[in-house]
Write a protein that binds this DNA or RNA. Structure first.
Lengths: 223, 223
DNA sequence: GGCAGAAACTGACTGCGCTCAGTTTTGTGA
DNA sequence: TCACAAAACTGAGCGCAGTCAGTTTCTGCC
């Protein structure tokens, strides 16, 4: 009958603790031994539960991975938006945010590969959480675009949401290709490719006058 | 010492035949029972080889699937380009081609899901073949763009290859999201989303003058 | 033809993700 | 306090993808 007991029903508390224990166990084992080399039985044992219990909390081993990654990505993105460079171009801001995500993926390519592969093919609950994340990033990018549109720096006739959405799609596609390639390429390569893709997409936001001017010098190469 | 024997060394011939038999067996079993419900042992048995032999020809069950799909997609794309509508806009042409691919995926969503998920995470040989396909589509789309640039219909200062590349990335990302969603949505939905994405990307190709004109009426809604 | 070495093939076996029939724990109402 | 239902948990067991030590088939050479 302590004060603590009032906060939550005992059952619910236990469940949350077990879920957290499983996530923690999985996180540490994945980091130490890698995703493929870690068995679900090990994770369950380390979390102090039976082998079958893991699957009451996560639909599959992949599901568990996505849950972990999803949580980490939130922190990465929050930090990236909090440290946006001042007075930078939209392109720079985009690369700052997506660059942070890429850097995170680069820390453990094996996990990243598995995550990116499974991301969209998990249990409904997890899938909803992934979409929430994607939409969250999209909305924040859209806000950065809208800001500039309001200032008259970018064409306000173009839908900020749709441009943001396209950019995320471009990011995902490039990231997958990069991770699929047995990551022989440096992340700088990926960032360079992404910059090109974004540049091409963002050009649609340039006010018509600016664009007409640009046309005079057909190609802008060498920085 | 017959004439036939001269064509290829016996061994090589046998290998090709076994590979073909495995592909045919897998194709028919996947179609009848579904991908998940078909075991590699069944496929091997139907092809008349031992269970282990399958893995001398394909690195994994997924690899086998990708090999099958890849071959079919070639035919689908070839057909799509051969039946391009006359005097249509670039956007219409793009939707014709990608629409054909989507229609193909819609025929067997379970297989399509597995394919799209594994596509970039297969054995090196298969991966190369997948990239060949992607590049092939990209090049053909780029050619359609270049044609219009040469005619003066589109801005020649924009790289046709890069626009085509971005379009493929947009396609892949949208397709994955659609297939991941337990395909409750009709393919028309996907096509509509894709049209929006392409529209936004292709706008970069509009000659500057045309674009300045368009700006007069800020939004083009209702068809 | 016959032999040696290589290449191709085989299927019993392994390890692991996931299931499910049975057991324990928790919450509730008398 | 006890009975009893429901929820949570368990781990032995199952099915299957993928492996590998041993076997067969092929090829080039004398």
């Amino acid at each position: 009958m302590s004060a603590v007991a009032l906060e939550l029903p005992r059952r619910e508390r236990n469940k949350q603790e077990k879920r957290a224990a499983l996530l923690a166990a999985a996180r540490s084992l994945f980091a130490r031994k890698g995703f493929a080399a870690t068995t679900t039985a090990e994770i369950a044992a380390r979390a102090g539960v039976g082998a079958g219990t893991l699957f009451l909390y996560f639909a599959s081993k992949d599901d568990l991975l996505v849950a972990i990654f999803r949580a980490d990505m939130d922190a990465v993105v929050a930090r990236a938006f909090a440290t946006l460079p001042k007075r930078a171009s939209l392109l720079t801001e985009l690369l700052h945010v997506y660059g942070a995500m890429i850097a995170f993926h680069e820390r453990d390519p094996e996990l990243a590969r598995a995550f990116v592969k499974e991301m969209l093919f998990v249990s409904p609950a997890n899938l909803a959480s992934v979409f929430e994340f994607i939409d969250g990033v999209g909305a924040r990018i859209a806000a950065r675009i809208a800001l500039r549109q309001a200032r008259g720096e970018l064409d306000p006739a173009v839908s900020a949401e749709r441009v943001a959405d396209n950019c995320f799609a471009l990011y995902i596609a490039r990231l997958q290709k990069w991770l699929g390639l047995g990551e022989r390429l440096a992340s700088e390569e990926l960032l360079a490719r992404l910059r090109e893709s974004f540049e091409l997409q963002l050009r649609v936001l340039e006010p018509a006058e600016a664009r007409a001017t640009k046309r005079a010098r057909p190609r802008t190469r060498r920085a």
